[in-house]
Write a protein that binds this DNA or RNA. Structure first.
Length: 883
RNA sequence: GCCCGGGUGGCGGAAUUGGUAGACGCGCUGGACUCAAAAUCCAGUGUCAGCAAUGACGUGCGGGUUCGAGUCCCGCCCCGGGCACCA
């Protein structure tokens, strides 16, 4: 019987659709399982083979969990705001909503053709007003929340205590004070501006080379009024929360690095000749004795105060030059350090010595206090700077582990040492501080305490994470529910949703304003009191909609509230979240931030949204290059007996693995694969390629391999002549239960490649046997069905069922059947396996040893050798040690 | 520079976490079926030597621990990802 996937696959997809087989009911009596895919951006290019990888994995688990009695929530939707639809609108005038709808239709059709068991009644779309109404609503919650460091919680802004000093200054001061505490605020911000996209981008969207992640164009600095979110207030919570999450360690590390917590101290330095102090942040207060100069960043507010008249011109020029530089120029490591002397000196609090204050752009205003004490002997950046400008290098830490040569250099101030050691030259009994003889951690403790006792400084914690730039000069995004009044007041428009106006032109407005600035009618508002105002013309970034979508699936059509809290309590948190590693920081950190705020406000019931996270690896493709490394398009490559040649030049080519790309002509379209081999084959191949979390190259021959397997399954199991009513043969029964056991544990551990291998092993066994019982055939069909659901349903129906296989109970492996009487011991001599010896499993170590020694084969290996000992690991191995 | 991954046959990858290296699949070789081809089926397939039995070698490189190392430890090399003057 032929394997007619082209008939059975549409048949079952139609069945699932019309019977709403995968509709999720809010049945609280069952244990729930919420399994989520990162929803896609529906691009015009349609699905690529990377999408079905994660989707198939979650689909297998969804089906497996249903068969294990779980109430499974497994939804899909569209992250549909974004630049491409808007750019297309600029070129063609087509409204982005139309483009978006078309693309979603394509994606939905393609996803449905893969037989994925989503509950389509819960489909969501971030561009749907019924959805973004609630994105705007969350923005309002953020705006109306402040973070209380005491209780470490976000609280309603109405509960913000106003200090009496502020209160006395009048209502304007109070308003400003309140604004300074809101989690969302509107302010001037130094932002990255992409002149090609005519929009700002967040720090995270700018690549290391200073180009915009989306378009590759160089970005520049601009000062613009923008919306920002105070995510650093949640830094500590976001950091602590990571510990209990079942996430890949690498992702957690990346988030930890991004948050960038450091412990150190703030120290106040007196300034010679002015009655002001310069505050620095350092993680190495212990090296205070080695501080030989200070540096402030060019943007430091005290720059003007500090500079002496004779240095004023120099310093001003330097600050001006620095302001023109991009961060890229300023941070490039290869670059030489620059700086100018202010003419002013600070007083080192432990030595009492005068140390020069410099301005240099290697110190950043955005971190710590924007000023540092420089310890060139024990900080490599300071060392580099000191060498260039001939500043003194005082070694105060005798290096612990350096070789003698290096140690001499360090002690002489000719090299830098940042590791542990023993302090020298670090005592001032007059000031009551002695570090000599201590090590680094003792030193840090001693100095910090000394500073605190004298009111000169205090222990401080710093974070690298910055405020999140939350507005874009775009049309196709969520409008802010905000009105700017002519008198400068900002207020919220709580009449949600605030809709996007229809535009004739999607070009950005004057001076870098969003295209919304062109929508005059929409833009201008008049208040009840006749006051005039303008709507916010910026829109939210794409992150906004994806920050909370997992919550809307819970109750996607609710018109009155974001979701029903009872449903939220049942379904949350997400039990398993699968998606690409490219979202390791941004999406996942932003989501966690919003979720924690919503948790503090009592809107959601869990502190963390995603209990377990798994990253699927990227699917790559084979590509070819010449001896000189030039890439060759795949259509110009000829395969001759496993060697590759250029069809035009005849040159032998080297096979490499690279990202799929149009230019290399090695992009695989899932539609073509479904057409040629069927959805079950595509699913199976994507899972069989290798471990889910690893990057791996696509090979068409591999699809053929799994397609062969499904053909063999179909040929054998759909031929009722092979299926008997007799009792199953013990050997086959054992093979079956071995497969159940392996497939079960492999699904639990997301090891789908080896699960499929186990299915293949059993199938090979069954075919070799020639006959299996109906019971066996049904059981095999059950464990095959999550992987190849169409064929699973088809066989299930053939065996007499008249309903879906999707909710049939998952088989249990019978351990009794797997027990062995005999074990075939590998017998090694000095660790080399020589022969096998079958012995009863219940043999004692002594009995095994005797059996080995008396075995005739052993004699051969003992000839001319001494038997030293016999190592027996019951049920594992025998090793005979000879000499 | 720092932080994570990863290097196993011709290829994708297995290996119960210290116990038979190479499961499963692709490819290749030989055979069956066929007028022939495709498809399918059967057998073989880490490398070297040998007709074979068998032996030697073998998990990026160099050391070490152990009765025994792909797996653990020390020192390197290469590939991929992230961060990068954060004091």
């Amino acid at each position: 019987m032929d394997y007619k996937f082209w008939e059975i696959e549409p048949k079952w997809q139609e069945f699932w659709d019309s019977n709403k087989t995968f509709k999720t009911r809010d049945d609280f009596s069952k244990p729930k399982y919420y399994i989520l895919d990162m929803f896609p951006y529906p691009s015009g290019a349609g699905l690529h083979v990377g999408h079905p990888e994660g989707y198939t994995a979650t689909d297998i688990i969804s089906r497996y969990k249903r068969m294990n009695g779980f109430n499974v929530l497994h939804p899909m939707g569209w992250d549909a705001f974004g630049l491409p639809a808007e750019q297309y609108a600029m070129q063609t005038g087509t409204h982005p909503a139309i483009t978006t709808r078309k693309n979603c239709d394509t994606f939905r059709r393609q996803i449905k053709s893969l037989g994925l068991s989503y509950d389509w009644d819960r489909e969501i779309n971030t561009t749907d007003p019924g959805y973004f109404k609630w994105t705007q609503w969350i923005f309002i919650q953020l705006y109306n929340t402040w973070y209380d460091p005491e209780s470490k919680k976000g609280l309603p802004i109405s509960e913000l205590p106003i200090p009496s000093v502020i209160e006395e200054m009048g209502p304007k001061a109070v308003k400003e004070y309140v604004a300074s505490k809101r989690l969302a605020y509107y302010d001037n911000a130094q932002v990255w501006w992409c002149s090609s996209c005519r929009t700002v981008c967040a720090n995270e969207e700018v690549l290391t080379d200073g180009s915009h992640e989306k378009c590759g164009h160089q970005v520049i600095r601009r000062n613009l009024k923008q919306w920002l979110l105070r995510i650093p207030h949640y830094a500590e919570r976001l950091l602590e929360g990571l510990d209990d999450l079942d996430w890949p360690e690498g992702v957690k590390d990346m988030q930890r690095n991004w948050i960038g917590k450091s412990h150190g101290a703030e120290v106040d330095f007196d300034i010679d000749g002015i009655d002001q102090k310069l505050r620095v942040y350092t993680t190495r207060p212990d090296t205070l004795f080695g501080a030989t100069y200070m540096v402030i960043s060019p943007e430091h507010p005290m720059a003007e105060t500090l500079v002496t008249p004779e240095n004023e011109e120099n310093v001003k020029e330097y600050i001006h030059t620095a302001s023109l530089k991009s961060d890229l120029d300023r941070t490039e490591l290869a670059k030489e350090k620059t700086g100018v002397f202010t003419g002013r000196y600070a007083i080192n609090p432990v030595t009492g010595g005068l140390i020069p204050i410099w301005v240099a752009d290697y110190v950043l205003m955005g971190y710590g206090t924007g000023a540092i004490m420089a310890v060139p002997a024990h900080d490599s950046r300071d060392f580099e700077f000191a060498k260039k400008f001939s500043l003194p290098v005082n070694c105060i830490l005798d290096p612990a582990a350096a070789d003698q040569d290096l140690r001499d250099k360090i002690l002489a101030g000719d090299a830098c040492w940042t590791e542990d050691g023993v302090y020298i030259n670090s005592a001032n009994s007059e000031k009551g501080i002695v570090l000599n003889g201590l090590n680094k951690s003792e030193g840090i403790r001693t100095v910090t305490q000394w500073l605190e006792e004298r009111g000169l400084g205090k222990a401080t914690v710093n974070f690298k994470i910055r405020d999140w730039l939350f507005s874009r000069q775009r049309y196709w995004g969520e409008p802010f529910p905000v009105i700017h009044w002519e008198d400068g007041e900002v207020s919220l428009d709580e009449n949600l949703p605030v809709m996007l106006p229809t535009l004739e032109k999607y070009e950005p407005g004057e001076g870098g304003e969003s295209p919304l600035a062109n929508a005059r009618e929409w833009l201008e508002v008049v208040g009840a009191d006749g006051r005039k105002g303008r709507r916010e013309t910026n829109t939210m970034p794409q992150w906004a909609g994806s920050c909370w979508y997992y919550l809307r699936y819970i109750d996607p059509t609710n018109k009155d509230s974001i979701f029903n809290p009872e449903l939220e309590q049942y379904w949350m948190p997400v039990d398993l979240y699968v998606g690409g590693a490219e979202h390791a920081v941004l999406h996942l950190l932003y989501s966690r931030f919003w979720h924690k705020v919503l948790f503090d406000l009592g809107i959601v019931s869990t502190d963390e949204p995603f209990i377990k996270l798994y990253n699927q690896g990227m699917i790559l493709a084979f590509a070819y290059e010449t001896a000189t490394g030039a890439k060759v398009s795949s259509d110009l490559v000829e395969d001759r007996d496993g060697k590759f040649f250029h069809t035009e030049t005849g040159e032998e080519l080297h096979q490499i693995v690279a990202k799929m790309s149009k230019s290399l002509k090695n992009v695989v379209n899932p539609d073509d694969v479904v057409q040629k081999y069927g959805a079950d084959s595509l699913r199976l191949y994507e899972m069989f390629m290798g471990p889910l979390d690893e990057r791996k190259p696509w090979a068409d021959s591999g699809v053929k391999g799994v397609s062969n397997f499904l053909n063999r399954v179909n040929r054998f199991f759909s031929d009722l002549q092979n299926i008997t009513d007799e009792k199953e043969d013990p050997e086959t029964e054992k093979a079956l239960h071995l497969a159940i056991k392996k497939v079960t544990s492999d699904i639990e551990n997301l090891k789908f490649n080896t699960a499929i291998s186990a299915l293949m092993v059993f199938n090979n066994h069954a075919i070799k046997k020639g006959k299996v019982s109906l019971e066996t055939a049904k059981t095999f069909t059950l464990i095959l069905s999550p992987f190849a659901p169409h064929l699973g349903e088809e066989l299930w129906q053939l065996y007499g069922a008249n309903d879906t296989i999707s909710y049939e109970p998952w088989p249990k492996a019978d351990e009794e059947l797997l027990k062995e009487d005999m074990f075939e011991y590998p017998v090694s001599f000095n660790g080399k396996m020589r022969f096998k010896l079958a012995l009863p499993v219940d043999f004692s170590v002594n009995q095994v040893e005797e059996a080995v020694i008396s075995n005739e084969k052993t004699g051969k290996y003992l000839e001319g050798k001494n038997l030293r000992k016999v190592v027996v690991v019951p049920g594992k191995i025998i090793n005979v040690v000879i000499s």
